[in-house]
Computed example of a mutant assay.
Amino acid sequence: MNYPSDEQIAEMMRQLTQAQIDNFLGQHIGTWRWWVLFILLIAHWFIWYKLVDKKRIVELVLFGVIIMVFTITLDEIGFVLSLWRYPVGVIPILPRLTSIDYTMLPIIFMLVYQYFPAWKNFFWALVVLSTVFSFVAEPIVVHLGFYVLIKWLYWYSFPIYIVMGLLARWIVRILIDIERKSCKM
């Protein structure tokens, strides 16, 4: 069997990237969808800064960064496996929905983490959040043309949001416990 070489794959990736940039510049930048994504990318950080508990900012940002890593990784996997695609983005070389992965999801998860400190309350807040994201927000984003489902159903997202939040909280709590124990020594 004849496999493409590393150099051929690199050239195909270069051509694909150039095609994405050309498509972005020719069809997407400056459209109403692009402006919505651009505003979402920035506006949520101002809202977050007003609402965040600044006494816990390091803990909250750590939690948010973990959520961001999860969302970017899962989004990249889903995109590469052609489970979904994004017709428009804020930045042409990033195939994911940057405004959601880098801003909306981490910020909303951080606020849930901040306002629901007990595990039980946090879990139930995640269930509500996952319901809203999966069955309200995602269909709206699809309807508005920001997100196209290929081999994905909304209910697949529901447990992922819950597990992502629980796992991020568990990691943060472990790190905080390690820090506290080391400070007592």
Rank of each mutant, 00 (worst) to 15 (best):
L51T: 06
F46A: 12
F122E: 02
I66A: 04
W152K: 02
Y3A: 09
S134E: 01
V172P: 05
I107P: 09
R33M: 09
K50N: 12
Y154E: 12
I162L: 00
P139D: 07
Y147P: 03
Q20C: 06
R173M: 11
V128E: 00
L175P: 00
V80Y: 11
L111M: 12
V80S: 11
Y113C: 08
V141E: 05
I171W: 04
Y102F: 15
T103C: 15
S99F: 04
E7L: 15
F133C: 03
L97C: 07
W84F: 15
F24Y: 15
P106Q: 06
Y154F: 08
I108R: 02
G145D: 11
H28E: 13
L166S: 01
V36E: 02
H44I: 13
V148L: 13
W124R: 03
L81T: 12
L144C: 08
R14P: 00
G145C: 10
D53L: 05
V61H: 08
Y161W: 05
F135P: 04
E179G: 00
I9K: 12
N23F: 14
I178T: 05
I29W: 08
L153K: 10
M1N: 14
G145A: 09
L94F: 15
T17F: 12
F38C: 13
I176V: 15
V128R: 01
I66R: 01
L144M: 13
W124G: 03
V69Y: 07
G26K: 15
I21Q: 09
Y102E: 05
T73R: 02
I108P: 03
I140R: 01
M12F: 10
M110P: 04
T73A: 07
W155D: 05
R169Q: 10
V36K: 01
M185L: 12
Y156G: 02
I39H: 00
W32V: 13
Y3P: 00
D53H: 06
R173W: 09
F158P: 00
R180C: 03
Y102W: 14
Y115W: 12
F146E: 05
W32I: 14
Y86T: 15
W119T: 10
A168S: 15
A125H: 00
K181D: 06
K55V: 06
Y113R: 10
L74G: 10
R180E: 11
D53R: 07
F116S: 12
W32A: 13
R33A: 07
H28K: 12
G26P: 01
K50Y: 14
F123V: 09
L153G: 04
I107E: 08
E11P: 03
W84Y: 15
T71A: 10
R56P: 03
F146A: 02
L144D: 02
T31M: 05
P92N: 08
S182N: 10
F158D: 00
C183T: 11
V61W: 12
V163L: 01
D101R: 02
M12K: 14
P106H: 08
P4D: 06
V69K: 03
T73S: 08
V69T: 03
K50E: 11
H143L: 14
A125N: 04
V128P: 00
Y102L: 15
H28F: 09
L60H: 09
T17H: 13
T71S: 13
